[in-house]
């Protein structure tokens, strides 16, 4: 029995966690989210390059109705979402039993093997293969040579565009949107009980999937992620229409860092960028 299964089995047996949100492999070898409720269930838990999901998205669903700690299996990128949820007072550290896993990258296309050409963008610039904190750690740390961060090149290209060219670029991308809201539903930071797009009195955003409705939805979602997105790239992975959503969220994360020296989801104690202010904050955006 491997380490992850043993850790989870022990945690469930010793009631360190009420249940564990982890991954299992189905009969078609697809690795998918799974909740282990009993020590026997823990036998099904697994981790691999195909464990793409950020399971922190499930925390908001369970936070209010559980007696005992929630166990959760996290890669280092996913842990940022857990940290961010703690920072944003959505969940308490003490209510979690965190099982960190060493990760050497996850696949882009779940139907194919993990290799240089099948690696998620986020892995190409990932700084931490081991989660910075945890209650238990599983999986061996493996070195894997990552391909170049090609998204950075595309971002530089978009930066160089004129405002009109950028508008044209994004209009063409958002035109594809079908408003299935997969981007929102997979996002651990999209935990609002009522999304702005659902507010109809008054209607803030057109709910129709027109050019205007699509543009306002995608831009508002991006704005709501400014300084909050932790970079798990789940939105882009989930988008059935292939819209490169992380170009926006990653860019805003970069701006939050360059302008305010802040990266969300990296400290349990630091106040959030949006939730605080400093007298030394720049005000040059007010003209």
């Amino acid at each position: 029995m491997n380490e992850l299964k043993q850790i989870c089995k022990d945690a469930l047996t010793e009631k360190k966690a009420r249940f564990i949100i982890g991954y299992k492999e189905d009969k078609n070898k697809r690795v998918k989210p799974f909740i282990a409720k009993t020590p026997e269930d823990a036998e099904k838990l697994t981790f691999s390059h195909h464990a793409v999901n950020n399971l922190a998205v499930y925390l908001s669903r369970f936070k209010n109705n559980i007696d005992g700690k929630i166990g959760i299996v996290v890669k280092s990128c996913d842990l940022k979402a857990v940290t961010a949820l703690i920072q944003e007072n959505q969940i308490k550290r003490d209510d979690l039993f965190i099982i960190g896993v060493n990760c050497s990258g996850v696949v882009l296309d779940v139907a194919k093997e993990f290799n240089k050409d099948n690696t998620q963008i986020k892995c190409k610039y990932c700084q931490a293969k081991t989660p910075p904190y945890y209650d238990a750690l599983a999986e061996e740390s493996k070195e894997f040579e990552m391909p170049d961060d090609d998204q950075a090149e595309l971002m530089a290209k978009i930066d160089k565009m004129t405002a009109e060219e950028r508008l044209e670029f994004w209009n063409a991308e958002f035109e594809k949107c079908i408003k299935c809201y997969a981007c929102r539903q997979v996002c651990p930071m999209c935990y609002c009980e009522k999304c702005i797009v659902e507010k109809s009195e008054p209607q803030w955003i057109d709910s129709s999937s027109t050019s205007r409705g699509n543009f306002s939805w995608n831009i508002i979602r991006a704005f709501h992620q400014a300084g909050r997105c932790i970079g798990c790239h789940e939105c882009e992975r989930a988008c059935p229409m292939g819209i490169p959503l992380t170009l926006l969220t990653r860019k805003m994360g970069m701006v939050a860092f360059s302008e305010f020296g802040y990266r969300h989801g990296t400290s349990l104690t630091e106040p959030t960028l949006i939730g605080t202010y400093s007298t030394s904050d720049k005000e040059d955006f007010i003209k």
Partner: peptide, 26 residues
């Protein structure tokens, strides 16, 4: 359906899903 996140990817790519909403838009 325990792990379902409640998006509409399945319904919107489906050739037979046909549910619709009617809204007024200014």
């Amino acid at each position: 359906g325990e792990m379902c996140l409640g998006c509409a990817q399945c319904a919107f790519v489906c050739p037979t899903c046909h549910c619709f909403d009617i809204i007024d838009e200014q």
